[in-house]
Design a protein around this nucleic acid. Structure first.
Lengths: 320, 320
DNA sequence: ATGAAAGCGCTAACAC
DNA sequence: GTGTTAGCGCTTTCAT
């Protein structure tokens, strides 16, 4: 079946493509009569707009790119789902690009986004360096950081109140009688990871337990790195009665490795949508997390707003 | 920063856009000298191709659409991740469209895919009716069904061997001494769901336990439907000592509701990548599931192959 | 080996 | 209220 174009509709009706275009784009300068005829013909002929053509001409694509470490992380997948819903309501489409926390994959993702003329980018930056964010700024596409921000820097962002989160995790452990926590977190160049540790330290500091760098073990949910990190913890000889994990994704794996007597707490509260059938504590964002706000910010910026868009989503402790 | 176009490169070098285009597309009819100069200039000027323009002209977009019920289902998210990796290697990009099992959302997804000139579609069909698949056929975009197939019909597909899966689940329950299983599955218009039940029935039939329609309870992982289905099971008065759930996504939720003495088994074996810290049995695909094969099939069809592409991925029982 | 030119389908500026 | 026209950036055909 040949693809129907504006021209086909115009010819059939004896009007010009401009007229048809105006009708289909809801530009209200066409007589009700022609309008109805165009609408009817478009429907009957099964017209489907060619976004490539529209985008080439108009410079807008009604597409955004979502650049994230890993869609298979349940927390991220859920946020993406929420974003996609809102996007649909606004007649937008998303392209999802995974970086696996890799700098060059992230760079390629940004290039891909550009080459597809996306109107905006939501990005959870790998943060190993700032080169990619600088590059992102040079291409002049509106963007909002999601889930991670830079301590200094002029990027707009929406993320969890991670320091508070770390504190809540610490207070929960303290309430359980724990005095020797360790932290198995994401790499130290990831702000979010550092902030959570900072909050944890401050909670324990209040009861006179001082945590240092030796209580911070780095990992990533890739491959068997988490198991390796846990083995590193054991090998280090550091004593512990509890573990704070950077995310539930990591916490779950740790819970499969650790004796039951050790308290484990994670972040993200994925149980709010994934019903994991075992007791588990987690610090997560209130409400629906950053999805809605991030998209609102991005749309604002696409619409030309120059305001600063920064927001910390409040967190709380969840027990499942 | 102004976007660099082929024209900019051509002008700077005193050649034509056609020449530049050939070089950048690797069409080997340009002298090594010009080729190197073009490549150098493109790199230095930070050229990023405009896919909208290329797509408009060539009819190809190097984009595929992935139409799925719900990206927040961990099993799906993981398969998508694998697909996205392969896509990247082939210089393709994916747009992800969630249907929530809704017919009209699915229809819209297909239209979106068309309007973006995708080269192919991977779709896990909602199956409430066949209208959308018929529509998909009329638009003449190569497509492959993933995870669900139609008993009759000429669509290509890659999915799990669901009947065998159901049988394995049944045999496992039997080995545990269960004699009164019930099935909490996806709607009966979903082939996959029916096939799994069929396999379950045949396993129990062999030991003289006949299951009927009253042992089949419908649900969906949306909202609190699973809890409702479980309440329906209780209200029905049907006796049971075990539950077979359509997916781990559903099984996990059921495990939070059911007494510990009841055996629960799900499908998908999400534990292979999501380390859920509790004992759980599941029937899942061997290897990496349908991701690789589905994409291979789709690429084949995009390349013009007319062969039939149908494949059942083998399944096995996982105990975690 | 390179140039010239057409045209993909659409939007937008302007003319009538 | 509708027609006319240019042109977005690219690929592709044909000429040289």
């Amino acid at each position: 079946m040949k693809k129907i174009t504006l021209k086909d509709i115009a010819q059939r009706l004896g009007v010009t493509v401009g007229t048809v275009s105006h009708v289909l784009n809801g530009i209200d300068d066409i007589s009700p009569d022609t309008r109805d005829r165009v609408l009817a013909a478009a429907k009957e002929m099964g017209y489907i707009p060619n976004i490539s053509a529209a985008s080439l001409r108009s410079g807008r694509s009604n597409t955004i790119a979502i650049i994230i470490p890993d869609i298979s992380n349940p927390h991220i997948a859920f946020q993406i789902k929420l974003i996609e819903e809102k996007l649909k309501e606004n007649n937008y489409t998303a392209i999802i690009l995974n970086t696996d926390e890799d700098e060059s994959a992230e760079y390629n993702a940004i290039v891909t986004a550009c080459s597809r003329n996306v109107d905006g980018i939501l990005i959870c930056p790998s943060q190993r360096s700032r080169d990619n964010i600088r590059f992102l700024q040079t291409v002049e596409i509106p963007y909002v950081l999601i889930g991670r921000s830079f301590a200094e820097g002029d990027s707009d962002y929406v993320c969890a109140d991670d320091e508070k989160g770390g504190r809540l995790a610490g207070e929960w452990l303290i309430s359980k009688g724990c005095r020797k926590p360790v932290y198995i977190g994401a790499y130290k160049y990831i702000e979010t990871s550092v902030q959570r540790f900072k909050g944890l330290c401050s909670a324990f500091s209040e009861i006179g337990v001082e945590l240092t760098d030796k209580h911070f073990f780095e990992t990533s949910p890739k491959g068997d790195l988490t198991r390796k990190a846990y083995e590193g913890l054991i090998a280090s000889g550091v004593e512990f009665d509890s573990i704070v994990a950077f995310s539930d994704y990591i916490a779950f794996e740790i819970m499969t490795l650790v004796p039951r007597s050790v308290y484990v707490i994670g972040f993200d509260a994925v149980n709010t949508h994934l019903h994991i059938p075992c007791h588990h504590s987690s610090v997560g964002m209130t409400g629906n997390g950053w999805a809605d706000t991030a998209l609102q910010f991005l749309f604002d910026k696409i619409d030309g707003s120059d305001d600063s868009h920064r927001h910390l989503v409040d967190v709380k402790l969840y027990e499942f």
